[in-house]
Computed example of a mutant assay.
Amino acid sequence: MNTLKPRKHRLEFFIADNIELSSFRDEIASMEHPFFALKGGNTKTREYRNGNITVIVKPNSDGLATIFDKDVWIYVISKLQESMNVNQEISKTVCFTPYDFFVTTNRTISGRTYQELERTLDRLKGTTIKTNIFYSKRKQEIIGFGLIDSWQILEEKKGKLDIGMVKVTLPDWLYQALHKKRLLKISPDYFRIRKAIDRRIYEIARKHCGIQSYFSITLDKLHLKTGSTSLLKMFRHNIKKLANTNDLPDYTIRYDSVEDMVIFDNRKNNLKDKKINFN
Rank of each mutant, 00 (worst) to 15 (best):
I15N: 12
N50F: 14
H208I: 00
P171N: 15
K233V: 07
N60Y: 01
Q81F: 11
I217T: 11
K130E: 15
F134H: 12
I90T: 15
R182D: 04
R200K: 09
L64M: 11
L174E: 07
T131E: 11
N52M: 09
F264Q: 04
E203Q: 15
E47K: 14
F102A: 12
K157G: 08
D265S: 08
I148N: 01
G41C: 02
R119I: 10
R10K: 15
Q152P: 00
V94E: 05
I217Q: 10
T252P: 04
D69M: 12
F235N: 04
F13D: 09
T45Y: 01
T128Y: 09
G164W: 13
R138A: 12
L271R: 10
I74N: 01
K221M: 14
R236P: 02
N269I: 10
I239Y: 10
F101G: 05
L242H: 03
R107P: 06
N52E: 11
N2M: 09
K268V: 00
T226K: 11
D189S: 07
A16Y: 01
D17H: 04
H33A: 08
G111R: 07
N2P: 14
D17A: 05
K137F: 12
V76Y: 02
A16T: 03
I90C: 08
I28Q: 10
S213F: 06
R107G: 09
L154D: 12
R7S: 13
F102D: 06
I263S: 03
T218H: 05
I53A: 08
K130F: 08
G146I: 06
A65Y: 01
G164L: 09
N52F: 06
V72N: 03
K241S: 11
G126S: 11
F191C: 06
W173M: 12
E20F: 10
I129C: 02
R7E: 14
R107I: 07
P249R: 02
I74Q: 04
K167T: 00
V262A: 05
T169A: 13
L184H: 05
W173G: 01
L242M: 14
K167E: 10
T43Q: 14
N270R: 08
K158L: 12
K139S: 15
E141N: 13
E203D: 13
I193H: 01
P34I: 01
R107N: 13
D17C: 05
K160V: 02
I163C: 08
S23K: 02
G164H: 10
E32D: 10
D172T: 10
Y135Q: 09
K92M: 13
V55W: 08
R112E: 12
W151Q: 00
L161H: 03
T54P: 01
Y251N: 02
T66P: 03
E32N: 09
I148Q: 01
N60H: 06
F24S: 11
K207I: 10
N18F: 04
R267M: 08
D69R: 08
N52W: 03
T104L: 07
K221N: 15
G227N: 09
K39N: 13
R107M: 11
P188E: 08
N277F: 10
T127E: 03
T218N: 04
D250K: 01
F278N: 14
I148E: 00
L154K: 13
L38H: 04
I163P: 00
